[in-house]
Design a protein around this nucleic acid. Sequence first.
DNA 1: TGATGTGAATTTTTTCACAGCA
DNA 2: TGCTGTGAAAAAATTCACATCA
Lengths: 209, 209
Amino acid sequence: MKQPPDISISRLAVYLRFLEEYKKDKGSKSTINSEELARFLDMNHHQIRKDLSYFGKFGERGLGYRIDELKDKIGKILGLDRKWNLCLCGMGNLGSALFAYRGFKQMRLNIVAVFDNDAQKIGRCIHGVKVYAPKNIPGVAKKLNIDIAIIAVPQIAAQEITNKLVKAGVRAILNFAPVKLNVPKRVKLRNVDLSTELIQLVYFLSTLA
Amino acid sequence: MKQPPDISISRLAVYLRFLEEYKKDKGSKSTINSEELARFLDMNHHQIRKDLSYFGKFGERGLGYRIDELKDKIGKILGLDRKWNLCLCGMGNLGSALFAYRGFKQMRLNIVAVFDNDAQKIGRCIHGVKVYAPKNIPGVAKKLNIDIAIIAVPQIAAQEITNKLVKAGVRAILNFAPVKLNVPKRVKLRNVDLSTELIQLVYFLSTLA
DNA sequence: TGATGTGAATTTTTTCACAGCA
DNA sequence: TGCTGTGAAAAAATTCACATCA
């Protein structure tokens, strides 16, 4: 069996989220086949089966996939069968939006610490999560066993806080600051880049005219 | 010449952003070659040249690319040589974060209207931009000639507001709500999906252990 | 000489077609 | 019969190698 491409992983996440929703709506139906799933997600049914096939067999011929089973198995593949500890860096508007994001709990992704520069906020608790000064990253990250950091600080502060996180042993970072961060190879970095997304829309529109 | 893949377009946006920053730092240096650029962006120099080659010739053999010229030309390719009118739907934490995003002005992407359900906010102005009720989308979108909509409303409200936008003639939508929106083919939809991004990090970590 | 621009080779991803099993 | 799972084919994207030109 070949190594699954990264893009298959991100599609598995999409399938999982869909199944969570679908189950809520259609509590009665207990199976779904690849063609239905593809129709809902507006994609090719071959691709869904191919993505799954990298990881084993999940369905039943002639029947389709048992929804609960598929959901659990995809969750397991993705590593969502255990808890993960996250920290959120930056508690401005973006940080607050991310903090409030309901999807976290559902996926057992727990924000266990917040880091912010604002003296007003440091030491406080937000929904049971304490806000620390960035200088405390080394101690807190180790003590709370932080797996993943979310960076929602201003561009200017992003690299410095990243350095602290990396030194403290954080191995995965989701970066929302519009800047290219430098991290060692062992650290997995993903960027969410608003301007890139928007520009693709602009390009699309400008090719219409 | 072949049609450029979508992914080349998003990389052009990355090159452009880098060049904007680079120019600020290194005001003196007026050219850059593909190898330097690749080193900065941590990618392959062949790819940079290939991406550019879809759109013509931009450099000078033996010298590299004139930074200002390249910046202008990429901007033109992407459609950033003219103004675009955006509306922001949803003025909660996420909406506020997006509103404050500095990158917009730089790219001549102007938020010209905000839509929100909150009666407290409707009718007010935020930094010169008026907040309207969603029911006013048809009139406002046409009057202000809105090209692109950003959706930052709760999941539950996302499809309904999308329908209004589409009816009002908006042809490009950037969606931050964690839900698959249905739009007609003529409308370009891009999704920024936080959970998908995070799950890829989780998968990476869980394959390490 | 030095770095671009690009056809060709390679690799990756998607799509297809169908064998195989309930 | 109906739908999965998968090897093979096709398509797309990346990387390479080098002709080309300042």
